[in-house]
Design a protein around this nucleic acid. Sequence first.
DNA 1: GGTTGCGATGCAAGCGCTTACATTGGGGAG
DNA 2: CTCCCCAATGTAAGCGCTTGCATCGCAACC
Lengths: 348, 348
Amino acid sequence: MQNSPNRRQDSRSDTPKLEDVAARAGVSTATVSRCLNNPAVVSEATRKKVLAAVQALGYAPNFGAQALAGRRTNTFGAILPTMENAIFARGLQAFQEELQRQGITLLVASSSYDPELEEQQIHSLVARGADALLLIGHDRPERCYSFLKKRQVPYVIAWVYDDDKDRISIGFDNRKAMKALTEAVLDHGHRRLALITAERRGNDRARQRSQGVTDAMVARGLDPESLSVIETHYSIAHGARALEQLMQRTPRPTAVLCGNDVLAAGALTQARRMGLDVPGDLSITGFDDIEIAEIVTPGLTTVHVPHRNMGKGAADLLLAMRAGEDPGPSVELEAVLMLRDSLGPAPK
Amino acid sequence: MQNSPNRRQDSRSDTPKLEDVAARAGVSTATVSRCLNNPAVVSEATRKKVLAAVQALGYAPNFGAQALAGRRTNTFGAILPTMENAIFARGLQAFQEELQRQGITLLVASSSYDPELEEQQIHSLVARGADALLLIGHDRPERCYSFLKKRQVPYVIAWVYDDDKDRISIGFDNRKAMKALTEAVLDHGHRRLALITAERRGNDRARQRSQGVTDAMVARGLDPESLSVIETHYSIAHGARALEQLMQRTPRPTAVLCGNDVLAAGALTQARRMGLDVPGDLSITGFDDIEIAEIVTPGLTTVHVPHRNMGKGAADLLLAMRAGEDPGPSVELEAVLMLRDSLGPAPK
DNA sequence: GGTTGCGATGCAAGCGCTTACATTGGGGAG
DNA sequence: CTCCCCAATGTAAGCGCTTGCATCGCAACC
C-alpha cells in the first residue's frame, strides 16, 4: 500500500561510518580502524584527531561489519540450566563483570534443564558468532563437543571439577562437598535421612551430590538403601510438595538433605505449614548458599559454593583460550560448609 | 612461541558458506538465500535440492554477514532494571517466547536501576544491531529517546501505562493499582500507614505507586503527611532493615505497604524475627505477585501484575513497528488485587 | 507461429569493516 | 651527504550475505 517497504530505510541512514570519520579526520579508514582497535600503533597526534572526529560524529562501529571483517564478535555466550532462581545469578554476574572489563559482551541463554534445548542453544550462540562458550556441567551428547571442536569455539565447563575429563572445567567437587555436609548431619546423630534431589538425568551435579550422600552413609556403616529419595524439579513449590510426601513415608526421616537451597526453602516452608519444628522435629539442609538461605527462619545449613570465583575464573580461562594461549589445567575451588540453625541434633 | 597466532585460523575454516551450498545444489547463491529467507518465491523442486544441500553440509548462515547485508539482525534487546529477583522474570520469559516464535533472538541487559548504565546499555544494544528495544518505565534522559529516534530503532515502554506520552507503552496504571490496594487496607480499619518504597528518583513506577498511596489517603480524608515512608533498595535484606526502622518510629504503623513483593518478604521475615504477629499486630502488603508472595507465611496480600501479557504484548508491538506497520495506541492492562492473609483488621 | 506476461533464476553490486602489503618520510649511522 | 631502517600511514582486497535488476523459458493468447 505504501511507498517503500520496511526497514531503517530511505536514503543513507543517519549512522556515520568509518569512512565519514576518516574524511573528517583527514586520514584513511585503515588508520581510524587501527586507532580504535590497536591505538598503540598510531601516533599521538593522529589519534587525537581521529578521536575528536569520532566524538563529533557520534560514531559507533557497525557490529555486523566488524564481525564479518574481523572474524570475531567480542561476544561470549553462556548457557545456564535456569534463570528462574538465583542459583547461577551470582556466578553469572561475576562472569559478566570480568568480560565487560575486557570489552566483551555476554549473550545468555537458558536451557530449562532440557538437553535438546541446550543443544539448540549451543548452535544458536555459535551461529550468532559467540567467540567462546560457558557451559554448566558435563552431561550432554558427545556431538555437542565435536561440534564445538569442529567450529573451533573454545568453551569451559563450570560448576563442576573433574581432572579426569579432557575438557577443561572450573568448579568444585560436588560429591565431596555433599559428603562433607552429610557427615555433619550424621554427626548430629541423625540416622534416618532423606534426600530431595533435582532430576539426575542429564544433570551431573545432582547425581554427584546424590552420590556424596551415599558415600557418607557407607563410610559410616549405614545402609544407603535406607535413604529415602524424592526426585523433583527445582522450585520452591516442588520442594514443599516433596517434603510433604517424605513425611508420609515410614519411618519418617529426621533429617532432609536438599539438592539445593531453593528446594530446601520450599521444604522449610512446608515443614512450618505442617507444624513441624525445625530443627527440633526435623533438620533440613540446602546447597549453594544463595541469599534466601540466610533469610529464611531458621537459617539454612548449606554448602557455600564459590559462585563469584567460578564466574571470574571461567572468564579468564576463556579469554586465554580465545587468545590462543594455554589456559592450563582445570581449576578446583573450595566449597565450604555453612552451619546454620536448620540443622540440629536428632530428636530422641 | 608457536607457529600462527590466534583466531579460528589456518586455511579455510570448516564452516560451509552460502556458496558451498549453492554449488552443491547446483544453483546460484541468490537462490539459496531466497530459499532460506523467502521460500515462497522459489519453486518446490529447487527448494528441496537446496534444503538437502543445507542439511548435508550442516550450513548455518554467518551472522555478521547476514546483518551487514540485510541491515537487520533479527535481534531485539531488552533492558531491565534488575535481574536479581523475579520481578521481571515472568514478563521477560513471555517476551522471549513470543520473539522466539518469530525467529528473533533476545539480547538482555540489566541496568541495576542506574540511569547512566541504562543509557550505556541502550547504546550498546543498538551498536550490536538490535532491531528494536524493550524499555521499562519512562524515566530517562530525553537524549535517549532522540538517539533511538535518530537511529530509527523502534522501542516500547513496558510496566507502565500512560496515554499522555507520545511514546507507546504497554502496562498498567501503577498509581491506580496502588490506590486500590491502599483503599483495601484502609477498609480494614488501618489509619497509621507506612510505606517502604524503592528509590523514586529515576523510577516512575515507584513514584506512581507512592502517589497511589497518598491518593487513597486523601480520598479518605487522611493527612498524607502522616504516612511514614522509607526509601530503600529492592532486596529482601533492605526490606527487613526498613521494617525494623519503621517499628522504632512513633506512632508505630499498623500496616506497612511495600513497593514490591521482595521488600514485603523482607519485612515479613523481620516482623517474625521481632516477634510480631502478622496480621494480628501488623499488616503487610506487597506488589507484583511473584512466586514468593504465595510461599511466605502468611500469604502476601499484593497486586497481581499482568506479567505475561505485558511481555507478549510488547513483543507484538515491536514486531509490528519493525515491519513498518502502525502498532496502534498504547495498551492498558489490568492489575488486580490479591487479598491474602498478610492483611487483616487493624489491631484495637 | 509470434507475442506477451510472468514465475523462477542468475548476475553482480554493495553492506562497513579489518588487515596484509605497499608506500612514505625522517632520523641516525657511516 | 647517503643509505638504511623503521614507524606511521595509505591502498585495496576481501569477509559472506542480500537484493535490485536482467535474463530466461514457457504457457497462454491472438
